[in-house]
Write a protein that binds this DNA or RNA. Structure first.
Lengths: 217, 217
DNA sequence: GGATCAAATATCCTATAGGATCGCGGGACG
DNA sequence: CGTCCCGCGATCCTATAGGATATTTGATCC
């Protein structure tokens, strides 16, 4: 563990700097489409709007850039990443299919019962937005349940793009997705790794097919 | 395609800003161990050393932080990430084994012959450092040959950690690794996806075993 | 020699300012 | 009417400065 990042149990957690708060704000705005895809992001406007200087804005945007959520062009400034097109959607789901079924298998073996109990299939979601947030949480928890930070991190990075893509289309809650989530949860509860992997693969494949329909080639 | 990032054939590429140049410098220093793992990185010292103001330093460090190469603690500043320990090495190779064999299979189907011809097994490397650079290039090219930017990007992110880890130990050139690279290349040349996947899996597993020996539990 | 404390120094973080660049609108010209 | 040019305002990018915080150093005491 790095000497800079240790927060053992009894130490007092440090407050965040402004840059980190700006990062969180912008990330949330991107996810919720308050900052839509392919939109100019002005450093000066943001500084005025958030009531801070340009410095933390630029730092936050630098981090968002490294995460692929915004892009930067020298002397022209920043813009949010555009909505995924077909090739990117294909690439993303290829990637998910490599990782998430494996993560579900690992989670079936490693997750503690209290964490499994926190999984929510989204059955009680009252709106598309609520379902999208539950879906994000569902996949995040299982990725974390795989006990591999790289898996959790890489899925987190890409899931935000799924979230944004889906939000652009304001689809109805996918009753199928709720059903598929349920199958994954049942396999996890049964500690059946093979079944969890299979259920997650099926869910990802079906999710891919549903999202693909939004893009007309 | 985002309006900000288009560089169609006849447009003039933009120069980089200072922040990007600082990012490249620091990244190279981290990779070469000129900036060792778990080392404080002072914004003011760097600004003096590189002859620029603090602003591009902070922006570059923000990007490096988002990439996991440095960490930041509020009011205490930045430090390079520590050398991987056993759990992180395990996580990293689990991840590689999910991705790289698949990438090799894809590359066997998709890579053009001229790119395959550029693959270098490292047989002619004259030193450990030269071999490490060739190894990085080898894996990078195959990941790119898989034609999925997410795969290429995620492997690029993690490979730098392998590179740093290996550099810490200054091991001899692994003649075995050269041989394994050769098997991967042969399968790619033969356009045999299954063989490429198998050869890459074998290489990653053996590489893992070799690196694991450096960490005494 | 080790522990403690206070002062000095270095560094972190952010705000502000200024020069460079870009984009837009209006006017001139053919 | 369409095109070109120029000026102006907005924005980008970086340097600088100053207050806040952390680290180091030196003195004192046991």
């Amino acid at each position: 563990m790095s000497a800079l990042n240790d927060i053992p149990d009894r130490q007092i957690a440090r407050p965040s700097g402004l840059a980190e708060e700006v990062y969180r704000r912008l990330r949330a705005d991107i996810m919720s489409l308050r900052l839509p895809p392919d939109t100019r992001v002005s450093v000066d406007s943001l500084a005025r709007e958030l009531g801070v200087s340009q410095t933390p804005i630029r730092e936050a945007l630098s981090m968002l850039e490294a995460n692929g959520l915004v892009s930067k062009k020298h002397f022209a400034g920043y813009a949010t990443a555009p909505r995924m097109e077909r090739a990117q959607l294909d690439a993303l789901f290829e990637f998910r299919l490599l990782i998430e079924p494996h993560a579900a298998r690992k989670a079936a073996e490693a997750m503690v019962g209290s964490d499994i109990a926190l999984l929510d299939s989204g059955a009680a979601a009252s709106s598309h937005d609520a379902f999208a947030d539950i879906d994000t949480d569902f996949h995040k928890r299982i990725a974390e349940g795989a006990q591999n930070p790289l898996i959790a991190d890489s899925l987190s990075r890409l899931h935000i793009h799924v979230h944004i893509f889906r939000s652009c289309f304001r689809s109805e809650i996918a009753a199928e997705a709720v059903h598929e989530h349920g199958a994954v949860i049942a396999a996890l509860q049964a500690r059946n790794g093979a079944a969890a992997e299979k259920a997650m693969r099926r869910h990802i494949e079906r999710s891919y097919a549903r999202l693909r329909d939004f893009i007309k080639d």
